[in-house]
Design a protein around this nucleic acid. Structure first.
Length: 406
RNA sequence: GGAUGGGUUCCCGAGUGGCUAAAGGGAGCAGACUGUAAAUCUGCCGGCUCCGCCUUCGUUGGUUCGAAUCCAACCCCAUCCA
């Protein structure tokens, strides 16, 4: 079975420019391909995860991925799928973000011995000469066609700046550049990148009279079509400082029944037989599949040790067994004993504000050691601690262990 | 540069002098039901020293006992014209 078949079977692929030729390409040679990542934040998030999985699959099959960090394009901002213009980032921010991306990708993709490359398009884009670019590249783009592109449709109504309009051209230029530099023949990306990818494919075919290909993978959406990876705290980050492994684990543990099989196929390396077997589970049983999903995904993004800890914490909290050592913990000082629980938990950001804390308690949404807190004025008393720790539950499933720092 | 319309709380969107912390919807949160799921029902949904007070309706000034609502200037957005 070819890698492309594997990707198809697992449900990655959305569109391909030349399906048969791409399949042949992967059978006949070691293919260099690239995926671009815009450094809009200082961490990758689940949205990027899918692309990384694709790279990993292809790398395992002996092909060579290029991670292209958009240090240059990031200064412009991709208008695809955005209703509003993106905020512009400063050069320092972009550089910082690029470095963060790099670190995270290295955990996931093997960059030794040039088995994968990491590049930054700032390297060539920032040097471009405007008039030269217009003559070399601009001549190959039809504004009429660009305006008809899906990715600009929304923005045609809302307004699109010339700056953003050029994003497509820059991305096409990237592909051309990589084609020249590293014989990169294929660009991949999320399905929202389709127009941008085609632009590059066509540019290479025109300039070089050489074949170039494009492939998009499906966006990671829930069964309801919403983007996956949104949490109450914002995006689901891959950086443990921004989203703890425990929260990360819990996100997948709590996923919709309908999305379990899809996620197992896309976000883990479990064999498809196993994925299908787990996907068959119904009702209560499907929780077993969710546990596998959560564990596997956490293991990939963080590591086995963190995945295990997250799993243990979850089992201790929800299964009622095991020790609580790995539960998210808040340390308080000795002099906090006697203070109001409301004050301490607001200070520790368990509540967004005191008002929210009050509301929560009034509505019966806060428990300490499994007993509902009914008194807003309740204080943290010594008797509440067993073994120096106390368990707070906010809402249905947010747990915090509080320990006193000695 | 000119004309017109518009900028309201996380998002959409009502509101044209006091009854407005501001309708309605979405998102979110909590409770019930459950399987740490979905659906459904109920409540909440600016902040605080919370039966009271403070801050918010593009910005800054002004009119008024009182302004998101009226006036002025400015900024931004959309559409048409140049």
């Amino acid at each position: 079975m070819s890698v492309i078949d594997v990707l198809k079977e697992r449900g990655f692929i959305a569109q391909m420019t030349h399906e048969e030729e791409i399949e042949k390409l992967f059978q006949n040679e070691k293919v260099t391909f690239y995926i671009g990542f815009d450094p809009t934040a200082d961490s990758l998030h689940v949205g990027h995860f899918l692309g990384m999985m694709v790279m990993a699959h292809l790398q395992r099959a002996g092909h060579r991925p290029i991670c292209l960090i958009g240090g240059g394009t990031g200064t412009v901002g991709d208008p695809s799928g955005k209703t509003d213009m993106r905020k512009m980032l400063t050069d320092e921010q972009i550089e910082h973000n690029c470095n963060c991306f790099k670190k995270q990708m290295q955990k996931f993709i093997d960059f030794t011995d040039d088995k994968a490359l990491m590049m930054n398009n700032a390297e060539w884009l920032l040097k471009l000469n405007y008039v030269e670019l217009l003559r070399n590249v601009g001549a190959h783009f039809s504004v009429n066609r660009m305006l008809a592109a899906e990715c600009y449709k929304q923005r045609m109504e809302k307004g699109l700046t010339f700056l953003e309009f050029n994003y497509m051209i820059m991305q096409a230029y990237d592909f051309w550049e990589l084609n020249n530099r590293c014989n990169c023949k294929l660009q991949m990306g999320g399905d929202d990148q389709w127009s941008n990818i085609i632009a590059g494919v066509e540019l290479i075919r025109r300039k070089e009279s050489k074949p170039a290909y494009g492939l998009t993978f499906k966006l990671l959406t829930t069964s309801e079509g919403k983007k996956m990876g949104k949490t109450e705290k914002g995006a689901l980050w891959l950086d443990p400082e921004k989203t703890s492994p425990y929260d990360f684990y819990q996100y997948w543990r709590n996923i919709d029944d309908a999305d379990v099989e899809k996620c197992l196929a896309l976000l883990t390396f479990l064999p498809m037989d196993e994925v299908r077997r787990l996907g068959q589970f119904k009702d209560k049983e499907i929780n077993e599949a969710k546990k596998v999903l959560a564990y596997e995904v956490t293991k990939l993004i963080h590591n086995e040790d963190e995945a295990l800890k997250a799993k243990q914490a979850a089992e201790a909290l929800f299964g009622g067994a095991g020790n609580l050592d790995n539960v998210p913990t808040i340390k308080v000082a000795r002099e906090d004993i006697g203070a109001k629980i409301l004050d301490i938990l607001s200070r520790e950001k368990v509540f967004a504000s005191k008002s929210e804390g009050r509301r929560l308690i009034t509505q019966g949404g806060l428990s300490i050691n499994d007993e509902k807190v009914t008194d807003i004025e309740m204080v943290i008393a010594n008797e509440l601690f067993n073994d120096n720790s106390l368990l707070v539950k906010k809402g249905k499933k947010n747990y915090y262990r509080i320990i006193v720092e000695s």
